[in-house]
Measured scan of single mutants.
Amino acid sequence: NTKMVRFKKGDSVGLRLAGGNDVGIFVAGIQEGTSAEQEGLQEGDQILKVNTQDFRGLVREDAVLYLLEIPKGEMVTILAQSRADVYRDILACGR
């Protein structure tokens, strides 16, 4: 149940992230009207890879910085997997 989305970065990627470290990086929110939303990313999706950067094992701050450093107008390719069950557990633990 993995999906790959590809879009051109606007002012931002339009994602709020949660998790990090051993639990993985998850989409915690999506800005309305962004390409990330239009391409089908959803809250609870685990981000496995962005462009050439493996997101598994990253701390959340490093994942956020990586997304911020992608220049506006560059193509962004995100490999994600729907993991809403794991995401709910992360929220319940306050991570």
Rank of each mutant, 00 (worst) to 15 (best):
V86E: 13
G73V: 04
V50D: 09
V27Y: 01
T34G: 14
I90C: 10
T34F: 10
T34W: 08
L68Y: 09
G14Q: 06
Q42G: 00
L67Q: 05
T34M: 10
Q46C: 04
I90S: 13
V23T: 12
L65I: 09
Q38A: 13
N1K: 10
D22I: 10
G94T: 13
Q53G: 01
I25H: 01
R16A: 10
D11R: 04
L15T: 07
L17H: 02
E37Q: 12
A28P: 07
I78Q: 08
V86F: 08
K9R: 01
F7Q: 07
A18G: 07
G20D: 13
S82K: 11
L65V: 08
L79V: 14
G14N: 04
L91K: 14
A36F: 15
K9A: 01
D22M: 02
N1E: 04
V13H: 05
D89W: 00
F7E: 00
P71K: 07
Q38N: 12
F26Y: 10
R16L: 10
Q81R: 14
V23Y: 08
I47G: 04
I70L: 07
N51I: 01
M4S: 07
Y66V: 06
A80G: 05
V64S: 12
G73D: 02
V59C: 15
G33H: 07
R60P: 15
M75Y: 10
G33R: 02
R83S: 07
I78R: 00
G10Q: 07
F55T: 09
G94M: 07
G94P: 12
E74M: 07
K8W: 08
F55G: 04
A92G: 14
G10M: 04
A36W: 14
G24C: 05
T34P: 04
A18V: 14
E43C: 09
I47L: 07
G14D: 09
Q38W: 10
V23C: 09
V59W: 07
L91D: 10
Q42T: 09
K9L: 02
A28R: 07
G24T: 05
E69K: 12
R16C: 10
G94R: 12
Q31P: 10
M75A: 04
E69Y: 10
V86P: 08
T77Q: 09
T52D: 15
L41M: 09
M75E: 14
F26K: 07
D22G: 10
S82V: 01
F26E: 03
D54E: 07
G94F: 07
E37P: 07
S82H: 11
Q53R: 12
L58P: 02
R95V: 10
R60L: 15
E61G: 04
K72A: 08
G19I: 05
D54L: 05
G14S: 07
Y87E: 11
G10F: 03
E69M: 05
N1M: 10
R88H: 13
V76I: 12
A80K: 01
Y66P: 08
G14M: 08
G24Q: 05
L91M: 14
G10C: 11
R6K: 13
L41P: 05
T2H: 09
V50G: 03
L67E: 04
G14T: 09
K8Y: 12
R16G: 03
Y87C: 10
T77K: 02
D45K: 05
Y66M: 01
V23S: 10
F55S: 01
D11W: 01
F26H: 00
E74Q: 12
L17M: 07
V13D: 10
P71R: 05
G73T: 05
N51P: 02
K72W: 02
R56M: 08
Q42Y: 02
V50R: 00
D45M: 03
G19A: 05
F7S: 02
P71V: 00
D22W: 04
Q53A: 03
V23I: 12
A92R: 13
E37L: 09
K9M: 08
G29D: 08
V13C: 12
V5A: 03
I70N: 05
L79T: 14
Y87W: 13
T2N: 11
E39F: 11
L48S: 05
V27C: 07
Q31W: 07
F26M: 04
K3T: 02
Y87A: 10
A92F: 14
Y87I: 09
R60F: 14
G40A: 05
G29A: 12
E32N: 10
G44C: 00
D62H: 12
G40S: 03
I25T: 02
Q42K: 13
N1H: 07
G73L: 05
A92L: 13
L91V: 14
I25D: 05
G94W: 05
D85P: 12
E74G: 03
